[in-house]
Design a protein around this nucleic acid. Structure first.
Lengths: 159, 159
DNA sequence: TTGCTGGCTTCTATAGGCAGAAGTCAGATC
DNA sequence: GATCTGACTTCTGCCTATAGAAGCCAGCAA
């Protein structure tokens, strides 16, 4: 590990999947939009009120998220209303659940006060609270400290 | 759930543990610093080169992370060198492993190219790759789509 | 005592993000 | 046709973030 660190001046962050993920969902408002989408919010005005950012910023974020394929802009029509559009989660968006769950677990441990749990996530089948945990492919539960993290071929700067 | 959405104009984001977590680790550079800290980077110059941001920005980020308790500034001394300082992960920082792992899983699935896996995380005991997965307290594995997410008492705006 | 090096801090200049208010637009209702 | 509403877009002005270059400081080595 030491050799690797000393050999290389820098990483190829453009190819790091963490850096790329952060390019897409790496702002507070983006994560809060996805949180609200997971809570069931669909409409522009509701997003604006609940996330607490201005309309121009929300329009830009939603456009980015639709462009990145995390949300889909779907026409719908309520009786007596004209056709409107709502923002629905795609598979790509829904697969952020582990990220948001891990973030929530961490925030609940290290950054809460005493007004109660802010978000509840439960297993649909049994109703029990859900957490993000680490597991290896051999099926072992893995503690945070038992993970070896090293730079792979995609991170090491080419040339 | 519908009633809840219609009853409330907005959430109390200041109390949302996701929002708070994002206030601390919610920027690209912060996450990349924590990624590199997990990869073993300790020194200011290495952080600057590997994360790829300027020195003033790095100094500010590191100060924030030390202030937030994710990193600790520790004096050390190599033989024949004067005393210097390095940045070590705290428990609070190391517990971001599930967040970063979930982010990496997502990025590997939805935002990679073909130059190979950027980061490898393996179980220290058995060497197998590690993933972030969802589990409920009854011990069931939970798929992304089987999580019910609702607003808890801490999120709903008081008054 | 004069480098030299790591680890910052200061300065400047620019680019981007965001709120708030106001304007636009489509189409259903009256 | 006039009005109304949700869903934006445009405009203005601020405020922050960042890069890049340069300067500063401590203290071991020569």
């Amino acid at each position: 590990m030491e050799d690797l660190r000393n050999d290389r001046d820098s990483w190829s962050n453009a190819n790091c999947s963490i850096a790329r993920a952060m390019d897409i969902v790496g702002s507070r408002s983006t994560i809060l939009i996805m949180r609200d989408a997971l809570l069931g919010t669909r409409r522009f005005d509701d997003f604006v009120r609940r996330v607490g950012i201005g309309e121009p910023a929300m329009a830009a974020r939603l456009k980015e998220l639709v462009g990145a394929g995390l949300l889909e802009r779907i026409p719908y029509r309520e009786p007596g209303q004209r056709t409107r559009h709502e923002y629905q989660l795609t598979a790509k968006g829904r697969e952020l659940v582990p990220v948001i769950t891990a973030l929530r677990n961490w925030g609940d441990t290290w950054a809460t006060d005493d007004t109660g749990p802010p978000i509840l996530a439960t297993h649909h089948d049994c109703g029990q609270p859900v957490r993000a945990v680490l597991r290896c492919e051999a099926g072992h539960d893995v503690a945070d400290g038992d993970v070896d993290i090293i730079a792979g071929p995609g991170l090491i700067r080419q040339g």
